[in-house]
Design a protein around this nucleic acid. Structure first.
Lengths: 201, 201
DNA sequence: CCACATCTGTAGTGAACACTACATATCTGG
DNA sequence: CCAGATATGTAGTGTTCACTACAGATGTGG
């Protein structure tokens, strides 16, 4: 098989730059011109490698999720449901206000509502958020089996709750909330999980 | 003063239609063509009445907040902090899945991230959300003064928390969560407020 | 060194966008 | 009934957008 001219840029490095642009401006707000400039390539290279704008977003989302999963594994490794929630929400407060990244979360900033032709982008993001929620739910199911959560506790509802708080914090972060404000929210939110936990004195 | 030809459409009715379009498609996703069609007018009438697209959004936001305030007053009229949170979050679960409106909340769907030229739209929405948060905070301050909240409770943090959960629920609603799922989130969320309340047997 | 395959940069393409010029229509004050 | 003022409908304006045609560059297999 003939090989042809090799690619002159690194796809993962370029994806990191694209990710940042989508994160800061959203899917529709990000233009191909901004993306190509950040990635250091020209439009034909982008289209040859990722198909189109939506393909680039999907690739960026996969990379985002992959990087995030490393951290999520640490979160669900916490010994109790309460500590899982605490690590998750406190960590999110820090991550969403980390000056190294745009504020908030790509899975929210990417796009909540989109115009004609991009209607499925919000659902694409929702599917990625759902993966996180599933991971939490599985962890809470285990917590209940271990007697760490009360008999009446609903692991799926708890996971959905933690996920909802994360998203809300992301929106607040992107509109200027500082780290301390988000930590306060996280601190209150954890108490709901605590209320579903068994007492172990 | 000379009067000129009178307007042939009702501004508030037209605003209701525009509100729905922004709610469903977001600020950037909504086009002038969609807006004028929904409003039943032509572009020159829109621009004469509201200045430009952003002016129309601001007018729609004001109307949204005005309609919503009627309900918010009922919410903060609840006798305890816990019941305020419950009315608020359960009511939001119902409102955000009301088939009479687009799913979610205009103050979230309107736009979380926007492109060049609309950077201040997300902050405009955040300012409206902050008004709600202030109303909750004032109510929780009163609750603390009445001994309804514990000594260590932080009314501002509680208000921010309830606001964050509302926003998170709005995002979930817009990506397909049903009423039952949102009610479960609300139900868990209320327990954090309950944990900050004094026991009154 | 040649045939072919793939990448890259230049320079566009048509479409969709927010917005408006202008002629006409409809009102009020005198 | 007339003059001035404002609203409306038609039909655009220039700009920006995602995307691509094409020619030249750079690799591999024979």
């Amino acid at each position: 098989m003939r090989m042809g001219r090799p690619r002159e840029f690194d796809a993962e490095t370029a994806l990191d730059q694209a990710m940042e642009v989508f994160w800061r401006h959203g899917y529709e707000g990000a233009t191909i011109a901004q993306l190509t400039e950040a990635m250091g390539i020209n439009p034909p290279s982008l289209y040859a490698c990722f198909g189109n704008k939506e393909g680039l977003l999907k690739a960026a989302l996969e990379r985002y999720t992959k990087l995030r999963n490393v951290w999520m594994n640490e979160v669900v490794a916490a010994p109790t449901a309460r500590e899982v929630a605490e690590r998750m929400l406190m960590g999110i407060a820090d991550k969403q206000t980390d000056p190294a990244n745009p504020p908030g979360c790509l899975l929210v900033q990417g796009g909540i509502a989109c115009g004609t032709g991009s209607e499925n982008v919000p659902f694409e993001l929702a599917a990625h958020r759902a993966r996180n929620e599933d991971q939490l739910r599985d962890r809470f199911i285990r917590a209940k089996a271990e007697g760490d959560l009360k008999e009446g506790a609903d692991p799926a509802a708890l996971a959905r709750y933690v996920s909802a708080v994360s998203v809300g914090m992301g929106v607040m972060a992107s509109s200027g909330a500082n780290r301390e404000a988000l930590r306060q929210v996280a601190s209150v939110a954890v108490q709901a999980v605590e209320a579903q936990s068994t007492d172990r004195s």
